[in-house]
Amino acid sequence: MTRLRQGSGGQALLEITGLTAFYGDFQALFGIDFRVEAGETVAIIGSNGAGKTTFLRSITGMIANDRDSIRWDGAPIGDLPANRIVAQGIAMVPEGRRLFPSLTVEENLRIGAYARSGEWTVERVIDLFPFIAERRRAPATALSGGQQQMVAIGRALMSNPRLLLCDEISLGLAPTIIKSIYDALPRICEGGTTLLIVEQDIRQAMQMSDRVYCLQEGRVTLEGRPADLTHDQIREAYFGM
């Protein structure tokens, strides 16, 4: 599943330097340095409260950042509001799926293309997750958790992203369903989409990523290729002991 890093010498697709984030007086991120190359699959691991979700919220503009702390294709995007990020080609599958309950399955997919579209269509998403064909008109709330997760991924794909952020897509799902979802990801990458995955399941993260970052208390404690990292290194980076 691992692929070679492409163009590691050139400009990163996403480059983050010294990113901080606050909730009021509470500091959640302390100077994160981070990069993703085009075509890579990068995983972020870390325990609850390590700052993973905050980090994704910063990238997607849900939290305001310094303009220069986040660069996309070399251009500073740190101060763009959330609703302008997706047009740049960064899409998010939010934690907890967050489908729109008043919308049908198909409408949920189509709204994904509100700001940007391209090769991904409803038909192509159905090709990826065939069950949707029969549930297009169903309200999003009528689906099972795993099905909702697939629609949430499809919805993000509808904006034809160059970078897809997946926040805990395995959370609360049965192992067989998790497997079918992760099995679909390589097909997403084939279309040239770069993946950034936040995952609590370390094994899953190591298995499917080219590179992994570990966060702990708002700091990067480890970065490397899964094959190069030892259990002890990971344990220390993850738990701080």
């Binding site: 967050r98 729109f100 700001a115």
Partner: peptide, 24 residues
């Protein structure tokens, strides 16, 4: 219409609507 979907999506969940590129 797409605008109607955007109305309903924003009404359901304004934060996630922004992730879709909808300017609330």
């Amino acid at each position: 219409t797409m605008l109607g979907s955007a109305f309903r999506a924003t009404s359901d969940d304004p934060d996630t609507a922004r992730l879709m590129g909808i300017d609330n």
